[in-house]
Computed example of a mutant assay.
Amino acid sequence: MNKRLMRSNDRVFAGVCGGLAEYFDFDPTMVRLAYAFLTLFTAFSGLIFYFVLWLVMPERNLIEH
């Protein structure tokens, strides 16, 4: 199976953390918590990282499984 890093339909905001969780086969809640800690402890530079990923990662089509 060919895996692609794509934004998830299981989303809270834009689907970036959900997409990372699906790609690396992690629990989405754990990825979201890790992202929140990263953002808080890096003086909010995680927000820039999130928005860059939001722009770069393609959105998963609703039809695609």
Rank of each mutant, 00 (worst) to 15 (best):
G46M: 11
N9M: 14
S45T: 13
R11A: 13
R4L: 11
S45H: 12
V31H: 01
L40V: 04
N61D: 14
T42P: 02
P28D: 10
T29Q: 05
W54H: 07
F37W: 06
V52C: 10
T39Y: 03
Y23C: 10
L5E: 05
T42R: 09
A43F: 15
S45R: 14
S45W: 15
L62G: 07
F24W: 11
A21N: 15
L40G: 07
M57F: 15
I48E: 06
M30Y: 05
R11H: 06
V12E: 03
Y50L: 06
D25C: 08
G18E: 02
M6S: 06
Y23T: 02
M6W: 03
A21P: 07
L62N: 15
V16F: 02
F13M: 12
C17D: 02
M6R: 05
N9I: 13
D27T: 12
M6I: 15
Y50N: 02
F24A: 14
N61M: 14
F37T: 10
C17F: 02
L33R: 11
C17Q: 06
L62C: 06
L47Q: 08
L38D: 03
Y50W: 10
I63C: 11
L53R: 09
Y50E: 02
L47M: 10
T42E: 05
G19H: 00
G46T: 07
V12Y: 05
A36K: 10
C17T: 08
R32W: 01
M6D: 00
Y23D: 01
F26W: 09
A21E: 03
F37I: 15
L47G: 15
P28R: 07
F41S: 07
D27F: 12
F44D: 09
T42L: 11
W54G: 00
I63Y: 07
L40N: 04
F13P: 00
P58W: 05
L55D: 05
F37L: 13
T29G: 14
N9C: 14
C17Y: 01
N61E: 12
Y23P: 01
V31A: 03
L5Y: 10
D27N: 10
R4V: 09
L20E: 00
M57W: 02
G19W: 00
P28S: 03
G46F: 03
M30K: 04
Y35P: 00
E22S: 01
F49K: 04
A21L: 08
P58E: 03
L55I: 12
S45A: 09
D10Y: 08
